[in-house]
Amino acid sequence: MSVTTLTIDGKLISASQDETILDAARGAGIQIPTLCYVDGLSAHGGCRLCLVEIGGSSRLQPACFMKVAEGMVVQTDTEKLREYRKMIVELLFAEGNHVCSICVANGNCELQTQAMDVGMDHERLDYTYPQRQVDLSHERFGIDHNRCILCTRCVRACDELEGAHTWDVAGRGSNSKVVTDLNQPWGDSPTCTSCGKCFMACPTGAIFKQGATVAEMDHHRAKLEFLVNAREKKQWHV
């Protein structure tokens, strides 16, 4: 594999040619914020938090998709990017019904963490207060659509790791929602194996363990990467 050198935030970095900017940056200890990206699953490119500036181009590019190239000059933390990231997080809060104080994921939520990281101390946009459902029909898990940010991590985990493809996205635009099978109660799903990978993948408290109470729930997200390494590389990182 040929090696490429590029500059990220002024730091000269070498990376292998097929790596993404995100991989290369992380390898060099540079953190780029992400929400829809999770180790072990394919990239989605939807949350736009990992957008970076690339020298010579006016278009921002998602670090999770964009491959490194020789001589590339990447900026991951400019004032413009910081402001845009803050607006993205604000858009997400305005779009759903996120109430951290009563959420099972309070303290373990990637959206909540992003809000702190981008410096969001209040919402500058209008809350839209959509009417959304909670499905508690599954014996082990539940989904609260009020907390869903449509990152599709559950969809990808179910399809790519478990292979069941119980989840998918239905509807479109602001009417999108994740569904199980034909939008039937999760508990009735004939395809669901109750493996819990969707739960592990979920960045917020949208998919939760039945019986979890406020702020007590951890997702064990690293399990997904553990599974991928075990399955594909036959390496068990315990």
């Binding site: 989840w167 998918d168 239905a170 479109r172 569904v179």
Partner: peptide, 25 residues
């Protein structure tokens, strides 16, 4: 109808959620 979507999913060997996702898109 859902019944019809399921019929299609079975014949095309597709996951039902995929069929539903496309039909509602």
């Amino acid at each position: 109808e859902l019944d019809l979507l399921l019929f299609i999913a079975r014949h095309l060997k597709l996951p039902p959620s995929r069929v539903y996702g496309v039909a509602t898109f």
